[in-house]
Amino acid sequence: MDPSRGRDDGAQQPGATGDRSTLTLQINGTERTLTLDHRTTVLDALREHLGLTGAKKGCDHGQCGACTVIVDGRRANSCLLLAVAHDGAAITTVEGLADGERLHPLQEAFLDRDALQCGYCTPGQICSAVGMLGEAADGFPSHATARKAPASAPAPLDADEIRERMSGNLCRCGAYPRIVEAIEDVAL
């Protein structure tokens, strides 16, 4: 659906009480202004309104991670984010990771390690890994972090840590061991 031919009736700025609003998302560095039904999620906005189908719909309920994108620097399930509530947010999708023809190191590592099969979870896995590495650098602990680990240092990422931190991204093809290796390649 081309947003330019969407209904304009009732479309108002966020904060109004109609059922549609006009909002701006910063997608992969480009401002995109859309008029959307309030029910539209960030995922559907990307896939059905902006033609960015890299983020996948696997469950539509935050249970699989295929829709993972990076919102204002942190990974999130875009299927649970209402677009209207994210007016002004900076969103990075899998389409925004490569630098021109040069792949992001994680994309490269996923290829090198054959960390994918059907590929449907792959964009979510890669965006999740990008976000996860940022979290670890910022000292975020995980369930796998030792109870007595120092609370202020960046979290060192061994395989157990990566597995735990990546468990929000299901892969039915069973590429997990290769995914962990690919992330280790980049994390080390």
Binding site: G54, V94, E95, L103, Q107, L111, P123, I126
Partner: peptide, 8 residues
Amino acid sequence: GRDKVTGT
């Protein structure tokens, strides 16, 4: 693979 890791 490249199409899959880039989302295309």
